[in-house]
Amino acid sequence: MECTGRGLSADFSLTAKRNDSLSAAGRHLVFCFILAVSFAISLGFALAGAWPILPFAGAEMLALYLAFQYVARHAGDYERITVEDERVVLESVDGARTVRHEFNRRWAQVVLDWARGDGHCRLALRYCGREVEFGRHLTDAEREAVAQRLRQTIRNY
């Protein structure tokens, strides 16, 4: 997980990324290694006359490829909250899906909820009766710190 507070032109900006312990290059390397081994084995048997091993190896490699693709698609998932002028912007990327919410800074409320029943806290922004949760890539301590910082930033406008 990577949390960054960015100054820039915004009053407050934070990007939280999911933890991904294998780089894209590492994923390619691992997949190519497994593919090479599996292909070499099945090709060897195919040359010896046992060709039905080849399609099974192919199907398995396809399944592994799809699994790695899924992981890769979500490797770039992040949430970003930006407080700038009159607006609070919440941007969430989940695979190919990007969701963007805009709140009026004067009316936005920070919700830090410990009553969710599993021992963890929930962080959300509430505005005009609608509530949008964020901070799924943060630890509880980080959610608390972000809530405090956000309240201060929003209050100081």
């Binding site: 409320q109 920070v110 919700v111 830090l112 909820d113 410990w114 009553a115 969710r116 029943g117 929930r122 959300a124 509430r126 509530e131 949760e133 809530a147 309240r151 929003i154 209050r155």
Partner: peptide, 11 residues
């Protein structure tokens, strides 16, 4: 702005 203790949701 006060922290709001919202109802539990997302059951």
């Amino acid at each position: 702005m006060e922290a709001v203790h919202a109802h539990e949701h997302g059951h």
